[in-house]
Nucleic acid binder design. Structure first.
Lengths: 264, 264
DNA sequence: AATAGATATCACATTTTGCAACACAATACT
DNA sequence: AGTATTGTGTTGCAAAATGTGATATCTATT
């Protein structure tokens, strides 16, 4: 009942979690061996801690420890192969929304690249406008597609034009349908992004395009990234490859978001 | 936080991969010996890391290490190898004309790509503006270079932005020095081009840039292509890899063209 | 082309880590 | 009180990562 420190004991685990997150933030990674030595607890305990934090999307589990999310993010070629199947599915759904003669905008990102593949495979005659160098390079060789690149400074991580120039360049287009990437979908249904520039471009596309969809593979759900994309869900649908968890799904439909995923 | 710096952190493969990719991006190559010493792991381990990254297409394995993977395949790949040596020479001469802090324009084409390589190899801090997707893709990963892409419709043959949009996009830049490609140099000293759009862009660059040079490897001399680049030689120099025949050389100097080629 | 030195490749041994089931203690709940 | 819940530790075994050494291959230098 009324023992001496009822709150203090409870704080043990959270204290570890704090320290773990602190280390992740400052060093980019932690190892189970180090942590279990530091806290003088068994490796299993640390493993459980990490699993818990991992499920909350605060870090990424790897063999022998954990790393910061964005630490594993940069590799572009890597991301491409990651969940390739899911991305193909998304590409298919997206392409089905497109009609002959449309002007399509494709954001940078590996999932949107999958959409590009699907569009190339369709026989639709399209004009595609993109900020991604790789997508432009790929699509310009497709006979059914006229590719446009948006000008601007190149962000090496995305291999795509970024910044204010892009916002201006977009102004010159009339976009029928836009497919946007995003960093994550937070547990309360906000679509978020890694950078300010990215989130700006995306919000602008939502208001600019006749229709706008986010393409987000299932690994993005429940994660957290810093920038919120304003007025996100107001005008946009989300295309994904797996039915989200019920909690999240309810939040999203409640907000009136169109949610497209394969029936399985 | 007593002991925060433990770079002797155990293993954590992704951490190594991260560092390896970082080095590949910034230095262009890594050696197994260096890496195994740095991470204090066996060469085998590094070898396995590299193989893994290599299989994912993030780098290219070579004897003793790995180098950056230049993803320049489609169509352009062949032309790139053509007279590669000559193009390297031209790149070197061109890079010598560039000074720290300049804003450089690079036209599309394989010879200008060689210039891009040379610029990347120099330690100069530059802003490079180009219409070529491949050049932008390559340069954006160079630590000393800020890459800009000019927006516009993509010409599949050149894999570069073309058309009126590009002419407008260029207007927004102040260019210190421009390196232009070209289809051919006619026997009477005119620089000519394959397309109208191309010749337009090039003439515009000549008047727009503070200095403008054509980079033309020796195979271009004496050829003929349809479009004449107006006011060509007025303000431009020509960089090439071999001294042209005397007849042509005389015509050119008579017109007051700066002609740069290696003394051999 | 012949040689030496460095590097790659392969198979196998060793170490580290992951996972799951269960035991045990401390705490919370009614 | 008793019982459920939660957090931790322990154990055994499977899986993964790493190290080691013998042998094959490459590169450069002569």
């Amino acid at each position: 009942m009324s023992e001496s420190h009822n709150h203090a004991n409870k704080a043990l685990a959270p204290r570890r979690h704090d320290e773990i997150l602190r280390r992740i933030a400052s060093d980019g990674s932690v190892s189970i061996a180090d942590l279990s030595a530091f806290f003088e607890v068994s490796r299993e305990t640390i493993r459980r801690d990490l699993k818990l934090l991992g499920d909350k999307g605060q870090l990424e589990l790897i063999h022998g420890g954990a790393v910061r999310f964005d630490a594993i993010e940069p590799g572009l070629g890597e991301r491409t192969r990651e969940n390739a199947q899911g991305k193909r599915v998304i590409g298919g759904i997206a392409a089905a929304l497109v009609e002959d003669g449309m002007v399509v905008f494709l954001d940078s990102g590996t999932t949107t690249f999958a959409v590009a593949h699907a569009l190339a495979g369709s026989r639709l005659n399209l004009t595609v406008c993109t900020s991604s160098l790789a997508i432009a390079l790929f699509l310009c060789h497709q006979p059914n597609i006229k590719a446009h690149i948006l000008g601007g400074e190149i962000d090496p991580r995305e291999e795509a034009a970024a910044g204010l120039d892009v916002l201006q360049a977009v102004e010159r287009f009339r976009i029928d349908i836009a497919f946007l990437g995003g960093g994550a979908v937070s547990p309360d249904g906000d679509i978020t992004d890694f950078t300010t520039a990215g989130s700006l471009l995306r919000s602008q596309m939502i208001s600019k395009a006749h229709k706008a969809y986010f393409v987000l593979d299932s690994s993005k759900f429940g994660r957290l990234t810093p920038m919120k994309i304003s007025n996100t869900v107001k005008a946009a649908g989300i295309i994904t490859d797996r039915r989200p968890k019920d909690v999240l799904l309810n939040v999203l439909v409640e907000r009136g978001v169109d949610l497209l995923f394969p029936l399985r």
